[in-house]
Structure formats: C-alpha cells, structure tokens
C-alpha cells in the first residue's frame, strides 16, 4: 500500500489552502451575500406589485414580466437560508451511492413538491374550507413542524441503515482481490432514502408563497398565482441543484483523492453515512427546538386562530 503520511499531509495542505482562500475571499462572499438579499427584496417587491397590478393589463408583455420576476425570485430565494438545502447537501455529501443524477432530480423534485404543497394547501384550506389567507399562512407553521419531525426521523433512519451496513461482515480477512460486496440491498433501499429527503424537505411550503396564492385568489387571479409559484419552484430548483451538484463533486473528488480499491472502503462509506444521518437528525432536532411556539405571519399582528376542520 502507498505510504499514507504524504497523502495525509497533502490533504491537510489542500484543506489549509481552501481555508486560507475562504479567509481572503470572505469580503467578496459578504458582499455577494448582501447583494443577494438586496436582489431578493427587489424581486419580492416587484413580484408583489406585478401580481397586484396584473388584472389591469394582462397581455403577453405582462405575462413575460411576471414569469421573469417569479423565476428570478425563485433563484434568489433559494440562495437564502433554509433547512431544505442543508438536508439535501448533507445527504448527498455523506452517501456514496448518490450520483450527480441523484443530485439533480432530488433538487428538482423537492423544489417542485414545495411549490405544489403551497398550491394544495391554499386550494384545500382557502378554496375548499373557506379559511382566510392569514389562517392558511398560520397553518404553514404546523406543516413546518411536520417537516422538521420528518427530517429528524429521516436522519434516525439513515443512522440505523448505516449501522446495519457497518455490521455486515467484511470479507477483508480472506480476500485481497476484487471485493464481492453485498451492498445491493442497500442500493435498492436508496430510492426510499431519496424519497424521504424529497418529502421531508418539500412538504414545507414557503409562507410567502401561501400569501402570494391567497392574495392572487383575492384578486381573482388564482391561475396567475399558481403559474408564478410553479415558475418560482423552477428557479429554486436551479439554485438548489447547483449546490447539490457541488456536494456530489466534492465527495467524488475526495474519493478519487484518497481512496484506492480497498475492502475497508465500504466500512468508511458506512461511517460517513452514519455521520450524515447524525447531522440530518441533529438538524431536525435543532429546528424543532428552535422554532417558536407561534405561527408567524407578521411581527405586528398575531395570526388568527386556525379553524377546527
């Protein structure tokens, strides 16, 4: 086997270099982060005004403007903080079965599910049950709690799965050649894990999207609202998939760098999956612990109580 120390030094050196780079680039990151907030607020205002004024002049140009703003809003809104991206990134970075393709469809599916949840929520609560918009926005709080709980459960399940994988006997004692791994059963399980990520992340709609749909409905432009939300999801998907791809690239880079075919590889993969599961579980728990006891629709006026269904 190759000597390990030089490799270790190289890896540490690379990490140190990255750290230094990040330190010197920090002012640029800070400016970029601020710029994103400023674009977001600009797009948020533009979108609100575009929908408010939509009924006045609904020609092709108005539609084009609306769709453009919605798309941009989605792109930059996803560039803000949010637990969904953290869960997706943690999963992809820690599960060696996930590929770039997984990253792409996971990002698109979770973004789309998020948009569709908002549309379903508004359709059922406001159109179906006759709730007012602010009550529907308040209900986002409960959906959000469910999402955090699902993230916690998903993390726990990933941990259990990783432990099972670690406990499988390694055949390293007998063999030095190709390893006949029995990870097929785990691969078969992976679509379930991916589905878990998509659902736990996607089930939480943005309260802003609910307000948008509610307002569009009140303005008699529900279809416009639905289209705007779907286009927004597409924008979100692009940002999220960029981040997701980055996670996969980074993991693959790490694998190429340091791992030679080795029976222990599966072992390491198992440990990594365990770490990923733990990170996701802790994320879920901290989100549950950190969220306030009240649904938040405005700092000025509390949300009206939800109606019993």
């Amino acid at each position: 086997m190759p000597i390990t120390l030089p490799r270790l030094v190289l890896v540490l050196g690379a990490l140190g270099f990255l750290g230094l780079g990040a330190y010197f680039l920090q002012p640029s990151f800070q400016s970029l982060s601020l710029q994103i907030v400023l674009w977001q607020r600009e797009l948020h205002r533009a979108l609100t005004l575009a929908i408010t004024e939509f009924s006045a002049l609904s020609d092709t140009a108005t539609w084009a403007t609306l769709l453009g703003i919605s798309f941009g809003y989605g792109v930059f809104h996803a560039a803000g903080p949010g637990h969904g991206k953290a869960v997706i990134a943690a999963y992809l970075a820690s599960h060696d079965s996930s590929s770039k393709r997984t990253a792409l469809w996971m990002s698109f599916a979770s973004s789309l599910v998020q948009g569709i949840t908002a549309i379903i929520l508004v359709s059922i609560l406001i159109i179906g049950l006759g709730w007012v918009t602010r009550q529907a926005m308040g209900s986002v709080y409960w959906v959000e709690q469910a999402s955090f709980a699902m993230v916690t459960l998903l993390g726990g399940w990933l941990c259990v799965r990783a432990i099972k994988r670690l406990r499988q006997p390694t055949d390293s004692a007998h063999c030095c050649g190709g390893h006949h791994s029995s990870i097929n059963s785990i691969k078969a399980n992976d679509w379930r894990a991916a589905l878990g990520v998509i659902l736990s992340v996607g089930v939480r709609p943005c309260s802003g999207a609910v307000l948008l749909l509610g307002a569009a409905l009140l303005l008699g432009e529900f279809v416009v609202g639905v289209v705007a939300v779907l286009v927004m999801s597409l924008g979100t998907a692009i940002t999220v998939s960029a981040l997701a791809l980055l996670s996969v690239y980074a993991r693959e880079w790490a694998e190429r760098w340091a791992i030679t075919p080795n029976p222990r590889q599966r072992q390491i993969g198992g440990w990594l999956a365990l770490i990923g599961g733990l990170v996701i579980m802790l994320l879920g728990i901290s989100l549950l612990a950190a969220s306030g006891g009240q649904p938040m629709t405005s700092p000025l006026i509390s949300t009206p109580p939800l109606r019993p269904i």
Binding site: L8, V11, S33, H44, F76, G80, P81, A90, A250, I268
Partner: peptide, 30 residues
C-alpha cells in the same frame, strides 16, 4: 492512519459542505 485520514477528511467535507454556505446567507423581508 490512512483509514482515519479518509474518514476524518470526509467528515470535515460533509460538515463544511452542509454548514458554511448557509452561514453566509441572510434572510430577505417577506
């Protein structure tokens, strides 16, 4: 050593990837 180096590095990567991008970001008004 190599085993630990691999594990450690990947661990670091996972943590870096999942946490840093989000601390650079601020929320926008609703």
């Amino acid at each position: 050593i190599r085993w630990y180096a691999n594990g450690m590095k990947r661990f670091l990567l996972a943590i870096i990837l999942t946490t840093t991008p989000f601390t650079w970001l601020a929320a926008h008004p609703h």
